[in-house]
C-alpha cells in the first residue's frame, strides 16, 4: 500500500487520444495522478470521461498516445495493470442471479486468491460497506445503493493500488450519495489507495477531490485543486449592507491591499477577496471603528459551476443539452449496452 505522502505517480497519461470513426472522444489528453491522491475528472456527460477510464483499465485501445497505471504501460503490460487496479463501472456490472457474496467470491477467484484469504477479505469488505446481513441475498433483490456499495466492496477485495470509480453516485438519492461519499473519503484516507473518479456533479468533485481536471469535448480545459480553481475567478465576494450613515468606510476599505475590487451602490458595498470568511471580522471592526453599523453580511464563495462557466462559457447543464445528440450517436455506434 502506498502511503499518503508517497510522491510517485499512480497514473501518468501522455497525449492520450481515442477516435471513434469521425468522433474524437478523447483529444490529446495528458495528466498525472499522484500516489494516494483522490483525483477527479469533472465534466458533462459525453465529455469523454468514461472513455478515458476504459482505456486506463485496458478495456479500450487508445488511437494514439500512451499511459501508465501503477507504473505499468496500459498497452504492453495489460495483465500487470489489471492486477493493480479495481474498477467500479458507471453501469452496474454485477451478476444479479448470484448473491452478493457469490459475486465477491467470483471476483476473488478471478484474481487468484486462496480460499482462506478470500474468506477473510470478503468478510472485511462486506463489513466496510455494511452489507454483511445481505450477503446471501440475490443481487436482483438489492436496491440501487446496495448494488453500488457491493461494487465498491468488490473493487477493493484484491487490494488494488489504484481504484477507478466511474460516476460512483449516478442515479442515487441524496442520502445514499452522502453515504457513498463518506466511504470513498474514508477509503482514501485509511487505506491510502489512489482513487480516480469521474463525475458530472459539481458538489461531488468539490467535496471529494484533492485535485481535479475539468473535461469538455474530450479535452482538459483546466486542472488543479478545487480551491485553486475557484481562486482563478478572483476569490470570494463579500457584500455588506450598511444602516444609516456610511461615513468614510468605503474609502478606508479600498486602502486594504487584500481587497481586490470594491463596488458601491446605495448602502451596499461588495468586495472580492481571497478567504472571505477570514476577512469579515476585520471588515466589521473597521466599520465599528468608523461608527458605521453593518446590518447584513453576505459571503459568496465561487463554486465549481462558476469555474466551469468561466472556462467553457456555459454551465454544465447547457452543455448536457447540447451534447445529447452527440451522446446518442456515440452510444449507438460504440457503447451499446453501456446504459440501462
Amino acid at each position: 500500500m502506498p502511503s499518503k505522502n508517497d510522491t510517485t505517480d499512480a497514473i501518468s497519461v501522455d497525449r492520450l487520444t481515442k477516435r471513434f470513426q469521425d468522433v474524437v472522444a478523447v483529444d490529446n489528453i495528458s495528466f498525472t495522478v499522484r500516489s494516494g491522491e483522490l483525483f477527479g475528472l469533472l465534466g458533462p456527460n459525453g465529455a469523454g470521461k468514461t472513455t478515458i477510464i476504459n482505456m486506463l483499465a485496458t478495456l479500450l485501445k487508445p488511437t494514439s498516445g500512451r499511459a501508465e497505471v501503477a507504473g505499468f504501460d496500459i498497452l504492453t503490460k495489460k495483465d500487470e495493470v489489471r492486477r493493480s487496479i479495481g474498477v467500479v463501472f458507471q453501469e452496474m456490472a454485477l451478476d444479479v442471479k448470484l448473491t452478493g457474496k457469490e459475486n465477491l467470491e467470483f471476483h476473488a477467484m478471478m484474481y487468484g486468491m486462496e480460499k482462506s484469504l478470500r474468506r477473510a477479505r470478503i468478510d472485511e469488505v462486506l463489513a466496510l460497506v455494511e452489507l454483511r446481513d445481505k450477503a446471501d441475498v440475490l443481487v436482483e433483490k438489492y436496491s440501487g445503493g446496495m448494488k453500488r456499495r457491493l461494487e465498491i466492496a468488490r473493487g477493493l477485495i484484491h487490494r488494488p493500488t489504484v481504484l477507478f470509480l466511474d460516476e460512483p453516485t449516478l442515479g442515487l438519492d441524496a442520502q445514499t450519495r452522502r453515504h457513498i461519499w463518506e466511504y470513498i473519503k474514508k477509503l482514501n484516507t485509511e487505506s491510502g489507495v489512489t482513487i480516480i473518479l469521474t463525475t458530472h456533479y459539481m458538489e461531488e468533485a468539490d467535496y471529494l477531490c484533492e485535485r481535479l481536471a475539468i473535461i469538455d469535448f474530450g479535452k482538459i480545459v483546466a486542472g488543479d485543486s478545487p480551491e485553486r480553481l475557484k481562486d482563478i475567478l478572483g476569490g470570494d465576494v463579500v457584500s455588506i449592507e450598511l444602516e444609516g450613515d456610511s461615513g468614510n468606510l468605503a474609502a478606508l476599505l479600498e486602502k486594504e491591499d487584500w481587497i481586490r475590487t470594491l463596488t458601491r451602490h446605495n448602502n451596499c458595498i461588495s468586495m472580492t477577496m481571497e478567504k472571505g470568511e477570514r476577512r469579515i471580522p476585520r471588515i466589521i471592526q473597521t466599520a465599528q471603528a468608523e461608527g458605521v453599523t453593518v446590518g447584513c453580511v453576505n459571503l459568496h464563495k465561487p463554486s465549481l459551476e462558476d469555474v466551469f462557466l468561466h472556462f467553457t462559457g456555459r454551465t454544465i447543464r447547457d452543455q448536457e443539452a447540447s451534447q445529447s445528440e452527440r451522446n446518442k450517436f456515440m452510444m449507438r455506434g460504440h457503447m451499446r449496452g453501456r446504459r440501462r
Partner: peptide, 16 residues
C-alpha cells in the same frame, strides 16, 4: 453478459 455489464467485470480481471 455484455448487455448486463458483467462482461466488463470478467474482462478487466487479470486472466488470460
Amino acid at each position: 453478459d455484455r448487455e448486463f455489464g458483467f462482461l466488463k467485470e470478467i474482462m478487466v480481471a487479470p486472466v488470460s
